[in-house]
Design a protein around this nucleic acid. Structure first.
Ligand code: MN
Ligand code: MN
Ligand code: ZN
Ligand code: ZN
Lengths: 141, 141
DNA sequence: GTTGATAATGAAAATCATTTTCAATAAGTA
DNA sequence: TACTTATTGAAAATGATTTTCATTATCAAC
């Protein structure tokens, strides 16, 4: 099953209807290599679906976030950008020039985080790690 | 020299004037154990300075950020909160219940971050690490 | 395939946070 | 003290997001 089919199935599962607008928005989000904000999604989606309203973009993205398919990404350029979520435990590497986002794994700092929390009398719940730099393409420019 | 004196001196250094409003806002920011957004600073400062306008809070906080005295903190509850900056390289541990923020040091992952970036053909520029959990006081409630 | 209940849509209005404008005021230097 | 000019706060402007609501479209039941 393709990712898009999985996403649409999840929508259906929750009793939501499959509409042309939702399909178009999902297409954009699944294709994008970088996190997008609602206005960016709106502009990109309108190329193929000019009558789309931005309200529908807001509603659809919020809904996809609740379904665990999109996640919010915080960057210097804004905290209202969303990226398709990858299953499992990962962290992000983001290009400061073009915004390309890459999930990476392999680092495991949990124990050290636990120790720091303990030292400070905190009960650790979560952690947030994000790397930023220039992606391959953007280094050459 | 007290921290407040250092802050006021930095303002003066940049040709800015010392006003009662700025002093009151700085008092609140230096006293707070957690990151605050402009509206919170406004409410807290108005207790001692009821005629204060919120525009002045926005302007003062932006200015303190540019001076490197405040930093923006990103949290689930909002990305417009500011915390007094600590000199040197630190990371934050934030209570998800009360917002208390603690700087910690001692962890050094730079080499591993470098390696991850390299593996992904990125030129590393920065990293962002933040831990969250329940602080000592909030665990007991 | 029709029908009907109701979820979804988009335009417009409302709301909320932040920024800009501007006349009055206050800080700090001479 | 007098003067220059940065600062202030009210009000207006802006920009992003949310709400409202009449219309339309989906999809399950016939
Ligand atoms: Mn991790
Ligand atoms: Mn670090
Ligand atoms: Zn790039
Ligand atoms: Zn706490």
């Amino acid at each position: 099953m393709q990712t898009k089919e999985i996403w649409m199935a999840k929508l259906k599962e929750k009793g939501m209807r499959i509409t042309a607008q939702r399909e178009a928005i999902v297409d954009i989000l699944l294709t994008s290599e970088k996190a997008l904000d609602p206005l960016e999604v709106y502009d990109l989606t309108r190329r193929s679906h000019p009558s789309l309203g931005i309200v529908t973009v807001y509603r659809t993205m919020e809904c996809l976030e609740h379904l665990g398919l999109l996640q919010k990404v915080h960057q210097a350029c804004g905290c209202n950008k969303y990226l398709k979520l990858k299953a499992g435990h990962h962290h992000l590497l983001i290009c400061t020039n073009c915004g390309r986002a890459v999930y990476f794994e392999g680092l495991n700092f949990e124990d050290q985080f636990e120790k720091v929390a303990e030292n400070n009398n905190f009960q650790l719940q979560d952690h947030w790690l994000q790397l930023s730099g220039l992606c391959g393409r953007c280094q050459k420019i």
